[in-house]
């Protein structure tokens, strides 16, 4: 057994991985956002643990920002501005089907472990489980973007990928430059806003069309 912080981080990262799987295995837009919000909150816990161990004020700021922005602001905004406005409910369009996707996801997880080879990682890391798990989360987000056909669902796949990158970055590097992470944060927000503007713009252009048709077109 590692240190208590290592145990918390391992558990937390496995939960984050499970949230990525929950997102991949769900079919309701509302659920995607819920799972993404929970995942981001768990990510904030991971960042907070890393900050506590490293006595790093910048990481504390990051943990707070993550909880506030990713855990609350983005899911809430997406729910109000995308899911409610476009009346999105069920995301049926995916190929291949749900069961195959989950099996492929499990395979990608295994691939991440094989590719990283956590046994060969440097000792002294907070939790060696982080590297393969964050890689697996990135791959799962990419898988969500590949199998889903709907733009909003793909957006969430992209956000999950970003969470995977963030998890790896926060827990691996002892002092992650705040400025880099803040830059990524603002990239994320900017991307989210662009996506929002694009979908709402499209929705307005398609305004005369019936909502069902609009849902299909996006």
């Amino acid at each position: 057994m590692g240190s208590p912080a290592g145990v918390i981080l391992s558990l937390d990262s496995v939960l984050i991985l499970l949230m990525a799987f929950a997102c991949l295995g769900s079919k309701l837009f509302d659920r995607y956002l819920t799972y993404y919000g929970v995942q981001s909150a768990l990510l904030a816990v991971a960042a907070g643990t890393a900050a506590y161990v490293g006595h790093d004020a910048a990481l504390w700021v990051l943990a707070g920002l993550t909880l506030l922005l990713k855990g609350y602001a983005i899911p809430t905004a997406a729910r109000r501005l995308l899911v409610r406005r476009l009346q999105l409910k069920r995301d049926a369009r995916m190929f291949p089907g749900l069961s195959v996707t989950l099996v492929v996801g499990a395979g990608l997880c295994g691939f991440a472990y094989l590719a990283i080879g956590p046994q060969e990682l440097a000792h002294g890391l907070l939790s060696a489980a982080m590297v393969p798990i964050s890689t697996a989360i990135v791959l799962l987000g990419a898988l969500a973007m590949v199998v889903r056909r709907h733009m909003v669902a793909q957006l969430i796949g992209w956000l999950i990928m970003e969470n995977g990158v963030f998890l790896g970055a926060v827990t691996l590097t002892s002092s992650f430059p705040l400025i880099v992470e803040a830059g990524i944060f603002f990239d994320l927000i900017a991307g989210f806003l662009i996506m929002l503007a694009m979908t709402t713009g499209l929705a307005e252009r398609l305004h005369p069309a019936p909502p069902g048709w609009r849902r299909e077109a996006l």
Binding site: G25, L102, A106, G110, Y113, P118, A128
Partner: peptide, 24 residues
């Protein structure tokens, strides 16, 4: 039901994979 049982399978599989990276 296949998805439910697939979920159980997945949890167990992730558990086994995790056992190789999380120090005992």
């Amino acid at each position: 039901i296949a998805e439910y049982l697939g979920g159980a399978f997945l949890l167990a599989l992730i558990g086994i994979i995790t056992s190789y990276v999380v120090a005992k």
